[in-house]
Design a protein around this nucleic acid. Structure first.
Length: 598
RNA sequence: GCCCCGAUAGCUCAGCUGGAUAGAGCAACUGCCUUCUAAGCAGUAGGUCAUGGGUUCGAAUCCCGUUCGGGGUACCA
């Protein structure tokens, strides 16, 4: 049994015996003792003073005496105001450490076949432009949360819905037809997604000019946007696509494939992957069918102009368009179809959508609509709503060219990591491939940690002028700590200090600082659980930093491999190895690799 | 207009379901590479937790008002 539980139960017994109080779990508040006070676990006694009818100090002392007698691990206690600080004996913490080390997957629960199946949708790109920093946040969060859920014992299917259909890709197609002169990514020497993205920008530039010209002729902006030749031609393409025009469909396939090649390389670089990919072109018809079924069943309403609507005012929402008057589908139509297909393909217990908070309303609507269509899982869908990445000037806008391109950013970070490592002469001993691999690990570690350490729900700021740090509270700091630990373990092995052999010999007392570290390590399983419950990689990121920092602070000037110092040295060695293991596990849940040396 | 979210050090962020003196990193300044990796360690300085009320033994945390910022809001995705 965990010590907290044991204390909690004993306190409940004490309250009954001493003050005749049936205390609820809520009343018994245990917390880690603050660093500035001595003790390990603190009980807050204020809530009991009403019943003890004694001062907080006396109440705390009485409870302290009781615990000291009843719980063998409680060695001593002290009282500060209404806080009862309990000191837990070293043996308990050392036993904890030994367990942590001997458990193959400390803190991680492996899902069995009966575990709940959760589908996590993330990434979900449009195929008309390359990925930018906003997508990076999405991808990293999606991947990490999937890993965290797995570590909490769920089966997880990672999925991606590619928005490969619609007016946006037609715009790029039109630009290619008109201005590309038969160029391909290969002939242009460009990554496929960037190639297509540039065509999209080119379309928009022409489109903008046309709008200005028409407005100069006296049309309103809305009329001009509607009547510009470019947009008409793009719509025409969309119509041809929907009618299966052979040439158009072929071009569509070709251009999408260019983009996919580009995306794949970016995904690979980021280290994210998917178990199942859906394409909007394959799901939107299902969505339409569902909407039509909804009309027949009287859930939705078709207006005179042919558009289809759903009235959600009874659910506190508005009226929502489901099909345009020309019969084409909108965003939510596709989500309905995709949801249906997914639940047909997998026995999903829970569906999680990793999508930005600008779509909070959309997912409220989707949830209600799916419920109305008779899917009992509609109500239970979870929108993992994350904040936007902002630039100092405000939101990233592709139209204004203020996006931070994913590939550029990653390449730049690798370059910085390389320069820095070479300057420090860090990896001179490694082969150039190994060194290159390590630079990437460090660069990606910095980027991923930078993104994942902040609360997913909140907007975050990225300043392109101040490149992402490699010092301080960063991924590389944690990687560095891990690398140092590995170095210590290598040196220990050279001295034939085997970890297993040292297990039984431990000192009776350990230093306060080391106990802090032991306690921190023991906390790891709870941290993983908390991250799972709150869908927050940030919880793990911040934990890894705290752990690494405490380790560095203590062992920076306390030798681990001191001679003639057996029991203490063995403990330090075991503690180091365990900290290394926990860091590696934690970072893996963030999708961050840790190098053996750096 | 209506709905949702946010505001903590110069900057970027932590602060768990209310608990002890508000926590890191960056930037600035001071020390430390004959000691297991200096991507590090030790230290100095920096705060009216936007603001005004309320709840309570106790509020950065919960409730209400105000200001500022962000997002959404019926044929974009």
């Amino acid at each position: 049994m965990k010590i907290e539980e044991k204390i909690s139960q004993t306190v409940a017994g004490a309250l009954k015996e001493l003050y005749n109080l049936e205390a609820s779990d809520q009343m018994i508040q245990l917390q880690n003792t603050r660093k500035d006070f001595s003790g390990d676990i603190t009980l807050v006694v204020f809530p009991f003073t009403r019943f003890s009818k004694k001062s907080p100090e006396i109440t705390a002392t009485e409870l302290g005496e009781f615990l000291k007698n009843e719980v063998e691990e409680v060695e001593d206690f002290n009282v500060v105001k209404g806080f009862l600080n309990l000191e837990i004996n070293s043996r308990y913490w050392i036993r904890n450490l030994q367990e942590a080390w001997s458990e193959e997957l400390f803190g991680v629960t492996i899902p069995d076949e009966n575990a709940e199946l959760i589908m996590v949708e993330y990434s979900s790109p449009n195929t008309n432009k390359p990925l930018h920093l906003g997508h990076i946040r999405n991808n990293l969060l999606g991947y990490s949360i999937a890993e965290i859920l797995k570590a909490n014992g769920y089966q997880v299917v990672k999925t991606n819905i590619v928005n490969d259909r619609g007016i946006h890709i037609c715009k790029s197609m039109l630009a290619w037809q008109k201005w590309a002169k038969g160029e391909t990514p290969e002939s242009a020497g460009k990554k496929g997604d960037h190639f297509v993205g540039e065509l999209y920008v080119e379309f928009n530039n022409h489109y903008k000019e046309e709008i200005n010209e028409l407005m100069a002729k006296g049309l309103s902006r809305k009329e001009a946007e509607e009547q510009a030749p470019s947009i008409r031609e793009a719509r025409d393409l969309l119509l041809k696509w929907e009618n299966g025009d052979e040439e158009v469909v072929k071009l569509w396939q070709t251009m999408n494939n260019w983009v996919y090649e580009g995306f794949d390389s970016t995904y690979k670089k980021m280290g994210v992957d998917f178990d199942k990919i859906y394409y909007e072109s394959e799901t939107y018809l299902t969505g339409k069918e569902e909407v039509i079924r909804g009309i027949k069943e009287g859930i939705f309403e078709q207006r005179n102009d042919g558009s289809v609507w759903v009235d959600l005012t009874a659910d506190g929402l508005d009226n929502k368009l489901l099909l345009r008057s020309d019969g084409t589908s909108v965003y939510i139509t596709q989500d309905i179809g995709t949801a249906k297909m997914r639940f047909k393909d997998y026995e999903i217990d829970k569906m999680i959508y990793v999508v930005g908070n600008e779509q909070n309303y959309h997912f409220q609507v989707l949830s209600v609509i799916l419920d109305k269509l008779g899917y009992n899982w509609g109500k239970g869908l979870y929108h993992f709503s994350y904040g936007m990445v902002e630039l100092p000037g405000g939101k990233m806008k592709s139209r204004e060219g203020t996006v931070v391109d994913a590939d550029d950013l990653i390449a730049e970070m690798i370059q910085v990591a390389r320069n820095m490592a070479q300057e420090l002469g860090k990896l001179d001993a490694l082969s150039s491939e190994e060194a290159e691999r390590t630079y990437e690990m460090i660069a990606l570690g910095a980027l991923k940690y930078f993104i994942l350490k902040v609360d997913p729900k909140k907007n975050m700021l990225f300043n392109p002028l101040e490149s992402i740090d490699f010092n301080g509270n960063t991924g590389p700091f944690i990687q560095y700590t891990h690398a140092r630990i590995q170095s210590v373990l290598r040196k220990a092995a050279e001295k034939s200090l085997s970890l297993k052999a040292t297990l039984p010999k431990f000192p009776a007392q350990i230093s306060v600082k080391e106990k802090e570290l032991l306690k921190r390590v023991a906390q790891f399983p709870e941290v993983v659980k908390e991250a799972g419950v709150n869908y927050s990689p940030a919880v793990i990121a911040n934990y890894c930093y705290e752990l690494g920092k405490e380790y560095n602070q203590f062992y920076h000037d306390h030798p681990i491999l001191a001679e003639n110092d057996d029991p203490t040295r063995d403990l330090r060695l075991l503690l180091s190895a365990t900290v290394g293991k926990v860091i590696k596990t934690g970072m893996k849940l963030l999708g961050i690799d840790v190098p053996e040396r750096m």
